[in-house]
Nucleic acid binder design. Structure first.
Lengths: 146, 146
DNA sequence: CTTAAAAGATGATAATCATCATGTTTGATG
DNA sequence: CATCAAACATGATGATTATCATCTTTTAAG
């Protein structure tokens, strides 16, 4: 559904939001270990997220990634747009360039509710809520090693 | 949502179903021209569809691709399964290996209805219906050149 | 029974996406 | 103000996906 890049982006953002407290920034190493993702790759992704004002970062000693109160209001759709663009929402399911409401492909209207459903979920889900649920232990971001 | 391979597979199948009549098989060249897809690539895909009994083919002079009455009952989900596998339906939206009903990722339950919705659409849509609609001119598979 | 037109099979190339590596800039701290 | 730990930037490699090319097999028809 999303690119791997986007999956990592969402996981990293949720992790940062669930861990950040007391002004202690979170290092890339810590992040990657806990979301089980390749370090260099995620570093690159976090730079993009940072430029899009989805997460914050600070260089230097005691630097790292963190998230502000405002940024906790980020909706999943913002991350998807920042990384994957609008393709998931607007692109034709059959890959037809000219497919539209007036020139629909054979399955255009059948997929419309699916798309709208997806969009709604992404619009209604905020990082804040997901991070809270992680903290409560309701959900997991990685398999817990015994 | 689907791979390009899968998009071409669906388009080709619909085209064959909408064009085939009077036992006249449809050549790969004709198909590719009308669905605007690369010939060699689609040839490969049609071989897979043929092996999966989604379309039929005949070699030699006056050979080509065609579709039987039974094959017109093929549902879109059959094509997706044949080409892309079950990843769209079962894979975690965040790419987590261990994500499941008992160990859900943070957005697992939010995406569940989206997935079910998608699956239902694919299950309820048959090639027969799509081909009929093409014939009636209600939908298009390619941009009509002026 | 030879020919030609079609799909079938397999392997090679190209493009895209994911991952890795290396060096640069920033900023707190002694 | 030198040092070091962090993110930042950019380019290189690897893997996967999409596309192309070449040859083989089948089959109707002269």
């Amino acid at each position: 559904m999303f690119s791997k890049t986007c999956e990592y982006a969402i996981r990293a953002t949720i992790y940062i939001a669930s861990e950040y407290k007391n002004e202690e920034k979170i290092g890339i190493h810590d992040i990657c270990q806990n979301i089980e993702a390749p370090q260099h790759f995620v570093a690159k992704i976090l730079q993009v997220l940072s430029r899009h004002d989805i997460v914050s970062s600070k260089k230097g000693v005691h630097g790292g990634f963190y998230i502000t109160e405002e940024q906790r209001d980020t909706r999943l759709i913002d991350i998807v747009y920042a990384i994957d663009g609008d393709h998931v929402f607007t692109g034709c399911a059959l890959g037809l360039k000219q497919c539209s409401e007036t020139k629909p492909c054979p399955i255009h209207y059948k997929f419309k509710p699916v798309r709208e459903n997806l969009k709604k979920v992404l619009q209604d889900t905020r990082i804040r809520e997901l991070a809270e649920n992680i903290k409560k232990g309701k959900f997991v971001l990685k398999a817990l090693g015994i």
